[in-house]
Simulated assay, not measured.
Amino acid sequence: MRLGLGRLSLVVLLAATTVSCQSEDKPPLPHYVSNYSDYGAPSGEVARTGEKRHFIEFRSRYALSYGHTYVIFGQVNKAGQMINPEVAGLAPATLDPTPYVIGHFVPVPAETGASDGDLEEQYRSASWRVMLTEEQYNSVVAYIRDLKARSHFWQASVQNCNAFVADIARHMGYKTPGIWLRPQQFVTKLREMNGG
């Protein structure tokens, strides 16, 4: 009986992963910036007090596969342009496609930094920027650094890039969509679920 349940669980898991890859991405969606977040104060208030303007941006990009979800964080200038942004995301730790394919079945070694195309505008498929106070920013960055230090494996249906970003969003108190969505759909749904 247990063997039958194990096989059934594997079939359901593989089906969920396959279904998430079947829809198609839309053209790039507009940039969304939240002037106010339940997590923080109005960005205008932050600017008036003379504090530096900090942000976290939940972002997805196109790729040869179904895409990638990650966060960008740092400061912005008065025009809203990023100043020395940092990137955090979860992906197989190689450019070789073999571990990526294997990672759909078993965990493979992961990396948690920037990957090719993360900061290139032509690959951005969806984004949601949340403005933060310096105190909030420091809390989120400390959490991201801790999450990066303990994220050693990538697996497509359990510990994928959406799960990594969802962990950060939950730390901030946000509701998160299922991790089996395509990255563009994940970021869009994350924004919509939280009033962004």
Rank of each mutant, 00 (worst) to 15 (best):
R2Y: 13
G4D: 11
R7L: 12
S9R: 14
V11D: 09
L13E: 09
L14Q: 14
A15R: 12
S20Y: 04
E24P: 08
D25W: 11
P28W: 08
P28Y: 08
P28C: 07
L29I: 05
V33Y: 02
S34Q: 09
S34H: 06
S34Y: 02
N35H: 13
Y36M: 12
G40E: 01
G44S: 15
E45R: 14
E45T: 14
V46F: 07
V46H: 04
T49R: 13
G50D: 09
G50M: 09
R53L: 14
H54Q: 00
F55M: 08
E57W: 06
R59A: 09
R59S: 05
G67K: 07
H68T: 08
T69H: 08
Y70F: 15
V71Y: 07
Q75E: 14
V76H: 01
V76C: 10
V76A: 13
K78P: 00
K78H: 10
E86I: 05
E86A: 15
G89W: 01
L90G: 08
A91G: 09
A91I: 03
P97Y: 04
T98F: 04
I102C: 02
G103Q: 01
G103K: 05
G103R: 03
G103W: 02
P109T: 14
P109H: 05
A110L: 02
T112W: 01
S115L: 04
G117A: 03
G117E: 02
L119R: 05
E120N: 15
S125L: 11
R129Q: 12
R129K: 14
R129N: 09
V130K: 08
V130C: 04
L132N: 01
Y137F: 13
Y137K: 05
V140S: 05
V141D: 08
A142N: 13
Y143D: 12
L147F: 10
L147K: 05
R150D: 00
R150H: 10
R150T: 10
R150E: 10
H152V: 07
N162S: 07
V165Y: 12
I168W: 06
I168K: 04
A169K: 00
G173F: 02
G173S: 09
L181M: 13
R182N: 07
R182Q: 10
P183Q: 09
P183S: 13
Q185P: 04
F186W: 05
V187M: 07
T188I: 04
R191V: 00
E192Y: 12
G195N: 15
G196I: 06
